[in-house]
């Protein structure tokens, strides 16, 4: 009981996720700065931002729905942290798993997006409402390719549990090479989920000040930023567990290092995307996701089915 509580709250759970999320934010910002030939922020920057935001005055708009405005960030934080527990990180077995946990992770990962929408909508500011609607519109676009790619991988493994998928890919090494196209599509869709460039349409600061976060400040903004960092870690560990299932060795420390390396690799790809691409318009983003990425994801499902047929015949 005590060990499980420690696992949930401290080590692979909440506190580790919090610190790791900050580290990933730093790596993202620093890499971006270096790619733009800048020096970039010091290593403690995300921590300083968090502490400063905690120390600031909380402003709650008079027109807003106070309960949704205040509780939303906490719900989003809880959902993102819970999703992390079901993903196999450096062990073959996730902390908790049951058959069908992949669906639970999907559900939990949509809650932060929904909170961004509700928080923006109930702020009752024009800019935050536009941002909220954009969040939801974008959500309907990237969700299909992202889930289709991850499900194509689970189709190949013939299971709905993330931990069992890892076990399958360890038993059939190099099978994950056939889902690599799916990895890149899912990575691009993940950029939409994390609201990163080129899909930072909901918080486009040059058009609609800060989108759904316009009215948030102080503690609530600190929580929302933490949620975004955590989502980045959870999303990239989900991709790493599904599409890069290798490196689960017996040595725990080495296994942990390989996990960190995978996450850093995905973060680096995101940072490169941030510095080389410009923001798309919402209609461009939606048509790109539905006309290009969704058919490609279907193709990935087809490839998985064919490979699965070969595996069964053998």
């Amino acid at each position: 009981m005590l060990k499980e509580l420690f696992n949930i709250l401290v080590f692979p759970g909440l506190l580790f996720l919090f610190i790791f999320g900050m580290a990933i934010e730093f790596v993202d910002r620093k890499l971006c700065a270096r790619l733009q030939n800048r020096i970039g922020p010091p290593w403690y920057q995300p921590l300083a931002d968090f502490i400063k935001l905690l120390g600031k005055e909380d402003v709650v708009p008079q027109e807003s729905d106070v309960a949704v405005f205040k509780l939303g960030p906490v719900f989003a934080l809880a959902a993102a942290a819970t999703a992390f527990l079901y993903i196999p990180l450096w062990n073959k077995q996730a902390l908790f798993s049951f058959s069908g946990d992949i669906i639970v992770v999907f559900y939990l990962l949509t809650i932060p997006t929904l909170v961004f929408f509700l928080g923006g909508w109930y702020s009752r500011s024009v800019f935050s409402m536009i941002g909220a609607v954009r969040t939801l519109t974008q959500f309907f676009a990237y969700e299909v390719p992202l889930f289709m790619c991850i499900l194509s991988s689970s189709l190949l493994a013939n299971t709905w549990s993330l931990s069992e998928m890892t076990v399958f890919y360890l038993a059939h090494p190099w099978c994950w090479l056939f889902t690599l196209p799916g990895f890149f599509i899912a990575l691009i869709a993940l950029l939409g989920k994390l609201e990163k460039v080129p899909f930072d349409i909901p918080e486009a600061e040059t058009e609609i000040v800060a989108g759904a976060f316009t009215e948030y400040g102080g503690r609530f903004l600190a929580f929302l930023r933490t949620v975004l960092n955590m989502e980045m870690v959870v999303g990239s560990s989900l991709l790493a567990a599904v599409f890069l299932p290798f490196g689960f060795v017996h040595n725990a420390a080495l296994s942990f290092m390989i996990f960190i390396a995978k996450i850093l690799f995905i973060t680096a790809l995101i940072a490169v995307a941030h510095s080389v691409v410009a923001r798309l318009r919402l209609n461009q983003m939606v048509s790109l996701c539905w006309r290009v990425f969704a058919p490609l994801a279907f193709l990935q499902v087809l490839i998985s089915l064919v490979i699965k047929g070969f595996l069964v015949m053998r």
Binding site: R38, G40, P41, D49, F213, G217
Partner: peptide, 14 residues
Amino acid sequence: LERFGVLLKGTPRH
């Protein structure tokens, strides 16, 4: 200016 942690924000709340 990001060396000093400065970020340009769009909204007065941040």
